[in-house]
Design a binder for these strands. Structure first.
Length: 367
DNA sequence: AACCGATTCAACCGCAGTAAC
DNA sequence: TGTTACTGCGGTTGAATCGGT
């Protein structure tokens, strides 16, 4: 047997708190404290509320020194900095802003600050290379089947597939169908990797099956202006050198949508310093970035640990004073190290590549 | 004044880690 | 040691409010 039930869930009030309830809770806690037991508190305080609800009400609204109202520019900056470093870990962010609650900051971010930042970067359609297929517009397909892949053999998605990672890509590619001109039927038996290799593998792999039989590739549409990202940031697939830094990034990895704010903020990476990411937009090839060739003399040695410069960095002026954020993270039971990694080259494109620590000038691969 | 879509934000929900039994 | 509650967190919801027509 475990513990007894915390409360009679059928007999607790829900919804907005009345002033009477507020004063009951406030009075009780000011007099007796929480006693470290929120579950027992409502009954003792004469409230028909769940302990969880009481806790939330107290922490977010009733406790002393809660700051309501407009956020200052300084608070904006701190939130931006922290979000760029640690993401949506609101409780940690709130701990740096006396009087602000995690809920407050979360709401503020979602309703105002994010939008404010969104306006500072060009929309995807203005910052990427022209789409190669199926046309040069940037239509967002709602449900799409194409008779040819949207990827070329140089795309990172293709590389991932040719590495046998199609199973990790299932959230991009729903299925592939394979019409048979002889029988007139369409099958889905051929796995995607095989199809990709047969049709696109550079270097002469047989294409006899696919040359005359167009494959249909079905893609999941990507929401709004999000892009798909895959690679090391997803798959945690870096190899590490003895100092814990990441010296090689492979294509191995999962895939997910990259939210707009993440595009603004840059990705975070679990290793120090370096990060390589690859992205794809609605199945179309998308520019990838990281001009790693300078990672040592330009990015890797930045004292704030950031990699490259993001739009956020430009906006918020991230600087060396952010070192303590790293300590924050490392002390919060998370091995991820913060770094801002995405950036544009002089042509406003993203790039990527493997990092070779022995070289500062090496191949830079662009999509 | 009435309507309606957009925005705000307090509160709820569900999950994960931890603690109690 | 297994089961179940507790706690804290982040994501989401929806009623209230705002603002434009």
């Amino acid at each position: 047997m475990g513990r007894a039930p915390c409360c009679d869930k059928a007999n607790v009030k829900k919804g907005p708190w009345s002033p009477e309830e507020d004063s009951k809770l406030k009075e009780y806690i000011e007099k007796h404290g929480t006693g470290g037991n929120w579950i027992a508190l409502p009954q003792k305080a004469g409230l028909k509320r769940c302990g969880k609800s009481c806790r939330l009400r107290w922490l977010n609204y009733l406790r002393p020194n809660i700051k309501h109202g407009e956020f200052s520019d300084e608070e904006d900056r701190i939130i931006c900095n922290l979000f760029a470093n640690i993401g949506s870990r609101w409780s940690i962010i709130a701990a740096q802003l006396p009087g602000r609650t995690d809920n407050d900051i979360k709401n503020y971010w979602n309703t105002k600050l994010k939008k404010k930042l969104m306006g500072l970067v060009p929309p995807i359609s203005q910052r990427k290379i022209p789409l190669p297929f199926p046309n040069s517009s940037h239509e967002i397909p709602t449900s799409t089947t194409y008779n040819q892949p949207l990827l070329s053999s140089s795309s990172s998605l293709y590389r991932s597939f040719s590495s046998g990672l199609e199973h990790q890509m299932s959230n991009i590619i729903l299925s592939s169908t394979y019409p048979n001109p002889t029988t007139g039927t369409t099958t889905t038996s051929l796995n995607f990797q095989t199809q990709m290799q047969e049709k696109y593998l550079v270097g002469g792999t047989s294409t006899t099956t696919t040359t005359n039989n167009p494959i249909q590739y079905n893609y999941i549409p990507v929401k709004d202006n999000n892009i798909l990202v895959f690679g090391s940031d997803q798959g945690r697939s870096c190899s590490s050198s003895s100092d814990g830094s990441c010296n090689q990034i492979s294509y191995v990895g999962g895939c997910r949508e990259l939210k707009q704010e993440e595009q603004i903020m840059g990705f975070r990476h679990h290793h120090q310093g370096y990060n390589i990411n690859m992205a794809n937009f609605n199945g179309f090839e998308e520019q990838m970035m990281i001009n790693y060739e300078n990672h040592h003399n330009l990015w890797g040695e930045k004292s704030n640990g950031y990699f490259g410069e993001s739009s956020l960095e430009k906006y918020c002026g991230l600087g060396d004073e952010n070192d303590h954020f790293k300590q924050l993270i490392s002390s919060s039971s998370n091995s991820n190290n913060p770094s801002i990694i995405n950036s544009y080259d002089s042509n406003n494109n993203y790039g990527y590549g493997n990092i070779d620590e022995n070289k500062t000038q090496d191949k830079v691969m662009y999509f």
